[in-house]
Simulated assay, not measured.
Amino acid sequence: MTTTVQLSIAGRGENDSPLLDDLLDQVRDYFEMINGVAASMAEGNAEQYDWRVVGLSKNSPATITVEAVARSGFPDGANLAARAREQTSYGLVRLQRESVRPLHFTDNVLEAADRFARRVTRGLAETSVVAQNSIEVVFRPADAVATIDHIAVVRADDPVHPYKELGSLEGLIQTVGADAWGHPFIVVRNRLTNADVKCFLAGEALSALEEEPVANVVWKQRRVTALGILRYRSLGKISQADVTHLEFADPARKLPGPADVIDRQFTGGLSSEEYLERLHNGDA
């Protein structure tokens, strides 16, 4: 199956004619987004395909159709381009609706998306993207303004995740909800950092939440341990989590306090300095 994309670009001039710079830059930024997403998917090895122009039209609006062609030695190159194209469309539509960084949208991809949207608030009246087996993306001025605002929030509040790891976090549930795509989540206030972390739920985690009474979860701020993939914005700072298992703590059981963990007889009556000196000398 071929991997094609068709862009229709309407200007604000006579007969929807776009300026040359706007037309070329809009096409360039769109494929910069796709290629950036592909680079993230392929962990940097995105040079597996080329884009070939297979159609041009100026029947109001101007239209360009391109096809992905695998490079020599990369038989799956066109497939990578197709997956990146689909993820790019999904991400652009998501940015029109909410201030959440789409998957594989690195800072460079966000920059291109911002330029792509801003052009529709100035010299262009509309840009639409149509691809087989993928959602259609349409940018009109209102869509572009919303996208620009959402990208600004993402840049300020949700830097790109530099790394991720399998792990767990513990804290109190602050909020329960779903994003614009219907993906359920909880917001957990991390016990160690006191920062709120959005945890998207799937599998056993979602089932465990559904079994809990709403009042206990939402109003009583249940303490929970969430296990899954933790995504970090920087060293030690969790920005988001994909959770597959939840463990609810017994609400009647309190966290241990200092009196529960400190053993005043640990040094046998010695001061800390005396105990450490004896330990150093092998006498403790």
Rank of each mutant, 00 (worst) to 15 (best):
V137R: 02
R231I: 10
F185Q: 00
P75G: 07
N216A: 06
A81Q: 00
N190P: 04
A62K: 02
I148T: 13
F116C: 02
E67Y: 00
E274R: 06
Q174C: 06
F266P: 12
F248V: 13
D22V: 04
G73I: 12
G177H: 07
S72T: 12
A10V: 06
V5M: 09
F105Y: 09
C199K: 01
I238W: 08
V120E: 03
Q48D: 01
A62L: 09
G13S: 11
Q221E: 09
T147L: 09
E32Y: 09
F139P: 01
V120Q: 03
A249Y: 05
P213I: 08
Q221R: 10
S168F: 06
G167Q: 15
D21T: 14
V109S: 02
S57H: 14
F74D: 02
N15L: 07
G167W: 02
L92Q: 03
D250M: 08
A131L: 01
A249D: 11
I229T: 14
V129G: 04
L235N: 14
P102S: 03
A125G: 11
E126T: 08
R155C: 14
D21E: 11
G91K: 12
M1P: 00
V145M: 07
Q265C: 04
L124C: 04
L246W: 05
V176K: 09
L24E: 07
D107E: 11
S72G: 10
R140Q: 15
D25F: 02
E212N: 04
L169F: 15
S17L: 11
T2I: 00
V129Q: 08
Q6I: 01
E211H: 10
L103N: 06
P256Q: 12
Q174N: 11
D196R: 04
I34D: 00
R52T: 00
G13C: 07
L19C: 12
D114N: 13
S272L: 13
H161V: 15
P251W: 08
N190E: 09
E47C: 07
V138F: 07
H161R: 15
F31D: 01
G177Y: 04
R155W: 15
F139Q: 02
A68F: 00
I186K: 01
D196P: 02
P258C: 07
A131R: 00
I148W: 09
D196A: 07
P258Q: 06
E274A: 06
I173Q: 02
E210Q: 11
V66K: 00
R71H: 07
V27L: 04
L209G: 03
V197H: 02
Q26D: 08
